[in-house]
Design a protein around this nucleic acid. Structure first.
Lengths: 189, 189, 189, 189
DNA sequence: AATGAATGAGTGTTCATTCAT
DNA sequence: TATGAATGAACACTCATTCAT
C-alpha cells in the first residue's frame, strides 16, 4: 500500500463523506470532483479509475481496523472496545461507511474484502474471551461465540444508532455504560 | 396500503432479490424488467415510477416487521425473538435487504422511514424488558437500554452473519443458543 | 447472420458513409446518430454497442464479397472481374471502406476478419488461372501467383483511384480496358 | 522542411510505429508520450500540436518517396521498382502506414497531400514506360495507363501482403519474381 | 397489459492542450 | 527540457421515463 499524496487523501476523504451522507449511488465522479473543486478529468491524474478509488477506500478501512493488542483477558476486551470507540469518534463518516456491510455488494471482490475487514476481529476477540475464561474472570457456562455476538453485536448496534443520530450523543460514554453492564453480567461472582 | 396485484407482488419480490444479491446500484428498471421477463415500459403499467417501487418495498418491510404480542416479560422477549427468526428464515432476501440500514440513504424520506421500521421494535422490547424486571425475572441492576442493545444487537449480528454466509447455517438453532446464553446471564439467580 | 431491421440497415449504411467520407475516427455514436436523426441513446435499441455495429459492417462486407461462380478459365476470370466492378459501382462507399485494409486495425479480431474477406478471393482466382492454363488459354511460363497479383493488384489500384476521384470516371469502362490489355498480354499466341 | 532534432525524429518514428501497429485511432498524445518515455506535456516542447506531428509524418513520407532517376526505359522501370523494395524493407512500418491510403482521411488538407505523395510516381513511371515503348522494348499494343496499373498495382498488392504478413516473407525476392514475370509478358518478342 | 422506439440527462473515461514550476 | 496538475470537450454507454401502437 503506497503512500498517498495529499490530493489522494483528499479524494478518498471526500468520497467517504459522500458515501456516508448520500450513499454509494451518489458517489459519482462528477459529485466527487465537485466536492473537491476540480473538474472530473482532474481526478484521473490521481486515481486511474473509480474502482481504484474504491480500492483505496478499502485500503483505508483495513488500516483503520488494525488494532494493537493492549491487554489480555477481560482487560483486553475492555481496552479493545474503548480503543475502537475512540477511533470511531475521530472518524465518524468513515465509521458510518464501514458499518454498511452491503456497500460494495455489487463488486464481488471488494465485497469479500469488506467482509473480511468488518469481521476481522472475531478471532482476536474470541481469544480474549477465552483468556478471560481461563483467568476465571468470565464464567465458562456461557459459550464464547455467544459472548462474542453479545459484545460485538451490542457495540455495532450502539455505533449504528450513533451514526444515524448524526453522531449527536456521546458514543464513548454510552459505550462505557454498555460495557459496564455487560461486564457485570458476564464476570464470575 | 392498497392490495397488490400478482404482477406488483412479483415486481417487488424480484426487486428485493436484486438488491439482496447485487446491491441497490443494480436495481435498475432494465434489470428489473429483465428479471421479470417483460420490457421496461411494461413495468410502468404496474408502478408509476421506480420511486413508487421503492415505497412499495418499504411498505412490505413495514408489514413484515409488524409483530403480534405473544407473551409478556421474559417469555415475551423469547417469543418475540423466535418469531423474528422464523420470519427471517422464510424471507431470507428480504431480511438481507432490511438489515442494510444504508440502502435508501440517498432518499431522505425513504431513509427516515427505513430507520423507523428497523428500530421500531425498541419501545416494544424495552417494555418487555421492564416487565421482566417487574416480574423479578431480570435483575434491576442492569439498565434496560443496555439489555436492549445486547439482545437486539447480538440478534442483528447473528442475522447479518447468516445473510452473508448465504443463509447456510441454521439460524433458528443458533438463535436459540444465543438466547439461552443471554437468558442465563440476565435472569435473576 | 440474422436479418436486419430497416433501422439497422440504415445505421450501417450511414456508418459506412461516415467511414468512407470522414474516416473511422469520425465514426462516433454522436455523428452516427446525428446522421440518422435520432439521439445517441436511440442507437442502442438497434445495436448493443459500437463494436456490434462494426461487426455488422463486416458481416455486410462478407455478404458483399460472396461470389457466384459464373464461368471457368479465362472467361471465368473476366466475369469475376466484371461482376466485381458492377458491385463496386452499385456500392461506392462500401467499396471505398472495403479497400481500406487498415480500417479495423485497432481491433485484432475484426482486423483479421477484414483481411480474410479482402483476400478471400485469392484461392478462387488462382483456381481460375490454373484452369485457363490447363485450357491452354494462358501460357504456363508465367507463375500463377504473379498473374494473381497483376490481375487483382491492378484492379485494386484502379478501384482505389476511382474512389479517391470521387467515383467520377467510368469504372466499368476503365476496368474493361484494363482487362483487355492484360488479357492480350497473358493469352497464348 | 526544417531539420529535425533527435527528439523530433524519435517522436515521428514512434508515431509511425503506433499507427502501423495499432491504427491512427491509437495515435494519441498519451500513447505517444508513453512510447517515448516522457510526459504528455513534454511532447509540446518538440511539436506544437498533434496536427504538426502529422504534418511532419507527411513530410517524411514525401522525403521517403523521392526517387533518383537511375535509368531509362525498361531498365529504368526495373531499377525504380527494386529501389522501392529496398526502401520498403528498410522502413517496414513507415511503408505500412504509407500504403494506408485512408489514414489521414479526416483532414482534407493532409489527405490531399497524402494522395499526391502516394500517386506521385505516376507521371514518372508513365514516362519510363513510354521510353520503353520508343526503345521497342515494350509492345505499343498495350496502353501505358494499363501497364502502369499492372506494374504499380501488383507491386502495391505484394507490399500490402508483406505488411499484413508481419514482413515475414522476402519482399525483394518476391518482387523480383513478380517483375520478371511481368517483364516476360510485356517485352516485345 | 404489453411492446418498440425514442429521449434528455447522466455515467465513467479519454482527448488534446495549457500553464506554473 | 521536462513535469504535475489542470481543463473543456468529446467519448461510448446507461439511466428513468414517455408515447404511439
Amino acid at each position: 500500500m503506497a503512500e498517498l499524496t495529499e490530493r489522494q487523501k483528499e479524494i478518498i476523504e471526500k468520497a467517504i463523506k459522500i458515501i456516508a451522507n448520500d450513499g454509494i449511488q451518489n458517489l459519482t465522479i462528477k459529485n466527487l470532483s465537485k466536492a473537491i473543486g476540480v473538474t472530473e478529468a482532474a481526478l484521473y491524474r490521481h486515481y486511474e479509475s473509480k474502482h481504484s478509488i474504491m480500492i483505496a477506500i478499502l485500503d483505508l478501512f483495513e488500516e483503520f481496523s488494525r488494532t494493537a493488542k493492549t491487554g489480555s483477558g477481560l482487560k483486553g476486551i475492555e481496552s479493545f472496545l474503548m480503543e475502537r470507540y475512540d477511533k470511531f469518534i475521530k472518524n465518524p463518516e468513515l465509521t458510518k461507511v464501514m458499518f454498511s456491510e452491503a456497500i460494495f455488494i455489487n463488486d464481488k471482490e471488494l465485497s469479500k474484502r469488506m467482509r473480511l475487514i468488518i469481521h476481522g476481529h472475531r478471532k482476536e476477540l474470541e481469544l480474549l474471551i477465552d483468556e478471560a475464561k481461563s483467568d476465571n474472570d468470565i464464567s465458562n457456562s456461557i459459550e464464547t461465540i455467544s459472548l462474542f455476538r453479545m459484545i460485538i453485536g451490542s457495540m455495532r448496534l450502539l455505533v449504528i444508532q450513533w451514526c444515524f443520530n448524526n453522531y449527536e450523543f456521546d458514543l464513548k460514554k454510552e459505550g462505557k455504560i454498555l460495557w459496564n453492564n455487560i461486564n457485570n453480567l458476564i464476570k464470575t461472582r
